[in-house]
């Protein structure tokens, strides 16, 4: 089998997960997307391990470890999300803006500052690209 198949599939899965992490509002959906990204990596590890015929099967061992770490991560992440939900009554990621500078607003900005956030994202993105 061509190595390109699993590699391309892994890349696409990873980017799908990436989109989910960046675009989803609910924290649990973000965690699902993180799982997708991890699985894409796992697929890569397995495919390259099979291709390289590693004597120690480092790729597969590492995949197992990754799965275990992912399980731990999902446990901790879920605990955090529940805590956030308990404290704030919502698990929306874009509501967690306590680190923002708030000169005149209240402590929590209103629910959906979509225009505001995309406005803010654009100059910042341009700046990041300019510095890169």
């Amino acid at each position: 089998m061509h190595l390109a198949y699993p590699a391309v599939l892994a890349a696409l899965l990873f980017c799908t997960g990436l989109y989910g992490v960046l675009a989803r509002r609910n924290a649990i959906l973000v965690l699902m997307s993180v799982e997708l990204m991890l699985n894409a990596v796992n697929l890569n590890l397995v495919a390259f391990d099979v291709w390289l015929r590693d004597a120690l099967h480092a790729g597969q061992a590492l995949t197992l470890f990754t799965i275990a770490v992912a399980a731990a991560e999902i446990g901790i992440g879920m605990a955090i999300v529940l805590l956030v939900y308990r404290n704030r009554g919502s698990s929306d990621i874009d509501g967690l803006r306590d680190t923002a500078e708030q000169p005149d607003d209240g402590p929590e900005p209103p629910d959906d500052p979509s225009g505001d956030s995309s406005d803010a994202a654009r100059p910042a993105g341009q700046k990041a690209e300019a510095t890169a």
Binding site: L18, V21, L22, A23, T99, A120, A121, P123, A128
Partner: peptide
């Protein structure tokens, strides 16, 4: 740029 929105930060970082 400091909107406090983690997703914005992450988008910029990944871009």
């Amino acid at each position: 740029a400091q909107t406090g929105n983690v997703q914005t930060y992450l988008s910029v970082l990944l871009a």
